[in-house]
Amino acid sequence: MAVTTRTLGRSGIEVSALGMGCWAIGGPWSEGGRALGWGRVDDEESVRAVRRALDLGVTFFDTADTYGAGHGERVLGRALAGRRDEAVVATKWGYTFDESARQATGENASPAYLRRAVTGSLRRLGTDRIDLYQLHLGDLPVPRVEALLGTCEELVAEGLVRGYGWSTDRADRVAAFAQRGRHATAVQHSLSVLRDAPELLAVCDKYDLASVNRGPLGMGLLTGKYGAGSTLPRDDVRGSAPTWLEWFRGGRPAPEWLRRVAAVRDALTGDGRTPAQGALGWIWARSGRTVPIPGCRTVAQVEENAAALGLGPLAPDQFAEVERRLAAVRSAALRDADRPHWPMPPIPSARP
């Protein structure tokens, strides 16, 4: 059964049930010598991808001012020129950057910086309003978030922002944020068939928040494109694999996550879906508040993901089978963890 739209929490804004994540179209940027982007991209193909998404009914676009150190917002703004009213635009603030050097430089959680950040995003996006403005600092303590809410409400009153949210995986902090922010309307958090988020989904239900889902395809693992022999380049954030990125280690897919992908692949694709389409169907079946935002940088990726809208959520029996298989993998992992580990098995070669 097709799924086409969702309501963006208490804002009442209608969005497509599928969004387009725009991290990758920001292109290369880094912090020191570590890549934070997804490698080199073709800006013209990125523009075509955004416009193709609109043609196929995808209306929700999620970016951040720091993606590409400002370049990602500029590309999205160019792609939406002349079609801005067809789109719901979400961006984020909190990290600082040097646009000319394509470098991340730190973070700033002050109300004064919030004012400067929204002005910069509006300029780069070429728009007069941001539909969903999200705090990007996921571990910020609640008192510091509360200090920002007054400015957020002022931005809503001035018509510069329609609603605001927080990109965080901290369910306990989201509850406090939702109670105190009148126009708080969404939480962006990690959610995929590989990693559920029951506490965050419960908070969304309790406070009428949209659940905007980053990493819905496991940063590519759930597309079926990567296997044990895959190596990601160093100019790709997955190739440099910072500690917060759990799916990849040493530029390779992490074996424990590949095992989970293998366990559920048949259950996700049994009705003719691609692995990516099955993973998106699982998210829609998980909750009626979810809006997954898989990253795209080509027209082909947009077309494959958008086709999932017509297929809709996984059927109840499919969803149950995926859960059964995941439970079996988790049980096996626990049994392995309890086994003695001496003598150690041979370490496999790092070469493919």
Rank of each mutant, 00 (worst) to 15 (best):
V322D: 10
G27Y: 15
Q179N: 01
V302H: 12
L201G: 03
V142D: 04
P111C: 11
A69I: 08
N305A: 07
A332D: 12
A241I: 09
H136M: 04
R214K: 12
G218N: 09
Y226R: 06
D65C: 04
D43Y: 03
A306P: 07
Y207D: 09
G126P: 08
A69F: 11
Q103S: 11
G310I: 12
V174K: 01
E44V: 10
A186L: 04
Q277D: 06
A332P: 03
V58Y: 02
G37R: 03
Q277H: 05
D271S: 14
E107R: 15
G229F: 10
R74P: 00
G310P: 14
R102W: 05
L200F: 04
G27S: 15
D55C: 07
V187L: 13
A333Y: 02
C296W: 00
P316K: 09
A171M: 10
R330F: 03
G9P: 08
A53P: 06
E14W: 00
L114F: 13
A328W: 02
V58Q: 01
S349I: 01
D235Q: 10
G239Y: 06
D139L: 13
A109K: 00
A202Y: 01
G126N: 10
T119I: 02
N108F: 05
G251N: 13
L36F: 10
G220W: 03
N305S: 12
S11Q: 12
I347M: 13
D65S: 10
T127Q: 06
H71A: 15
R265T: 15
L194F: 02
R286D: 08
V193A: 15
G224S: 10
V329K: 05
V329A: 05
I347A: 14
A262C: 04
L18E: 04
G224E: 13
M20H: 03
M219V: 07
T223H: 05
R84I: 07
A315F: 05
G72P: 08
E158D: 15
P313T: 05
V302S: 10
A350H: 15
T105A: 13
V89W: 05
V299F: 08
R330N: 11
V50M: 09
G288N: 13
R34N: 15
A171C: 02
L309F: 09
G215M: 01
P28F: 04
A17M: 04
A306M: 13
D98E: 03
Y133A: 09
I13H: 08
R116L: 14
L122E: 06
R238D: 06
S30R: 14
T5N: 12
A24H: 01
T119H: 05
S11D: 12
L132C: 08
V329Y: 05
P141S: 07
D128Q: 15
L222F: 03
A171E: 13
A228C: 01
R351L: 12
R6F: 07
R162F: 09
P292K: 07
A24G: 07
R324N: 08
A101D: 11
Q134Y: 08
G126H: 09
R265E: 14
M344N: 02
S46K: 03
